[in-house]
Measured scan of single mutants.
Amino acid sequence: SGEEFIAMYTYESSEQGDLTFQQGDVILVTKKDGDWWTGTVGDKAGVFPSNYVRLKD
């Protein structure tokens, strides 16, 4: 389980282990570690910068 966040911006990365997503995607955040959080979008999982998302209303 985790908290749902909304992507405010598209995040694209070629780094292994990074979670890429489109603006407006719902991200289920499973771990918060400083500026880099872990989460899932659909069947993808990985880390992403926390300043790209906001808490879902």
Rank of each mutant, 00 (worst) to 15 (best):
Thr38Ile: 02
Gly42Val: 03
Glu4Trp: 08
Val26Asp: 11
Asp25Thr: 10
Gly24Cys: 01
Phe21Val: 01
Asp57Tyr: 10
Ile6Gly: 04
Tyr11Ser: 02
Ala45Gly: 10
Gly46Met: 00
Val26Met: 12
Gly46Arg: 02
Asp57Ala: 07
Ser50Arg: 15
Tyr52Ser: 08
Gly2Phe: 15
Lys31Trp: 03
Asn51Gly: 12
Pro49Ser: 03
Thr10Trp: 02
Lys56Glu: 07
Leu28Gly: 05
Phe48Leu: 03
Val47Lys: 15
Gln22Val: 11
Gly2Gln: 12
Phe5Met: 08
Leu55Val: 10
Glu4Asp: 13
Asp35Pro: 14
Tyr11Asn: 03
Val29Ala: 04
Gly46Cys: 04
Gly17Val: 05
Lys31Leu: 06
Trp36Thr: 08
Phe5His: 10
Glu12Asp: 11
Val26Asn: 06
Leu55Tyr: 02
Pro49Leu: 02
Glu12Lys: 13
Gln16Lys: 15
Val29Leu: 00
Asp43Ile: 09
Thr10Phe: 04
Ala45Tyr: 14
Lys32Asp: 02
Lys31Val: 08
Gly2Lys: 15
Glu3His: 05
Glu3Pro: 04
Leu55His: 09
Tyr11His: 11
Thr30Ala: 07
Ala45Asn: 15
Gln16Val: 10
Glu15Asp: 12
Gln16Arg: 11
Ser13Arg: 05
Phe48Arg: 02
Gln22Met: 12
Gly39Ser: 00
Tyr52Thr: 03
Val29Ile: 05
Tyr11Pro: 05
Phe21Trp: 01
Val26Glu: 12
Glu12Val: 08
Thr30Arg: 05
Gln16His: 14
Lys31Gly: 12
Val53Ile: 04
Gln23Trp: 03
Gln23Asn: 05
Ser50Lys: 06
Lys31Asn: 15
Ser1Pro: 06
Thr38Lys: 05
Ile27Glu: 01
Trp37His: 05
Glu12Phe: 08
Gly24Ala: 04
Gln23Gly: 07
Leu19Pro: 01
Lys44Gly: 10
Lys44Asp: 15
Ile27Cys: 02
Ile27Ala: 02
Gln16Trp: 07
Lys31Thr: 08
Asp43Val: 11
Gly2Cys: 14
Glu15Lys: 15
Asp18Ser: 15
Ala7Trp: 00
Ser1Asn: 15
Val29Tyr: 02
Gly2Pro: 07
Val47Gln: 11
Lys56Trp: 08
Gly34Gln: 15
Gln16Asp: 10
Lys44Ala: 05
Thr20Gly: 08
Trp36Phe: 08
Ile6Val: 13
Gly42Glu: 08
Val26Lys: 12
Met8His: 05
Met8Lys: 07
Met8Gly: 04
Arg54Asn: 09
Ile27Lys: 02
Thr20Tyr: 07
Lys56Ala: 07
Tyr11Arg: 12
Gly46Ser: 00
Tyr52Asp: 04
Asn51Thr: 13
Asp57Ile: 06
Trp36Glu: 10
Ala7Glu: 00
Lys44Tyr: 13
Leu28Cys: 11
Met8Asn: 06
Asp57Pro: 10
Lys56Asn: 10
Ile27Thr: 03
Asp33Tyr: 13
Asp33Arg: 13
Gly42Trp: 02
Asp18Pro: 02
Asp33Glu: 10
Lys44Trp: 05
Glu4Val: 06
Gln23Leu: 06
Val47Ala: 11
Ile6Ser: 08
Gly42Met: 05
Asp18Met: 14
Asp57Cys: 12
Tyr52Lys: 04
Asp18Gly: 14
Val26Arg: 12
Ser50Trp: 00
Glu12Leu: 07
Gln16Glu: 15
Thr40Lys: 14
Phe21Thr: 01
Ser1Asp: 12
Asn51Phe: 07
Ile6Phe: 08
Asp25Gly: 00
Val41Met: 13
Leu19Glu: 01
Phe48Asp: 03
Thr38Glu: 13
Val47Cys: 15
Gln22Ala: 11
Gln16Tyr: 13
Thr38Met: 08
Asp43Tyr: 06
Tyr52Trp: 02
Ala7Asn: 03
Gly24Trp: 01
Met8Pro: 05
Ser1Ala: 07
Thr10Gly: 13
Thr40Gly: 03
Val41Lys: 15
Gly46Val: 01
Gln23Pro: 07
Phe21Leu: 03
Asp43Thr: 14
Gly34Ser: 05
Phe21Cys: 02
Thr10Met: 07
Leu28Asp: 04
Val53Thr: 04
Val53Ala: 06
Lys56Gly: 10
Asn51Ser: 13
Ala7Phe: 00
Phe5Glu: 06
Val26Leu: 13
Asp18Lys: 14
Glu4Pro: 05
Gly24Thr: 02
Thr40Phe: 05
Arg54Gln: 13
Arg54Glu: 14
Ser50Phe: 05
Lys32Cys: 11
Tyr52Arg: 09
Gly39Met: 00
Ile6Pro: 00
Asp43Ser: 14
Trp36Ala: 10
Asp33Ser: 09
Gly2Tyr: 09
Asp33Lys: 06
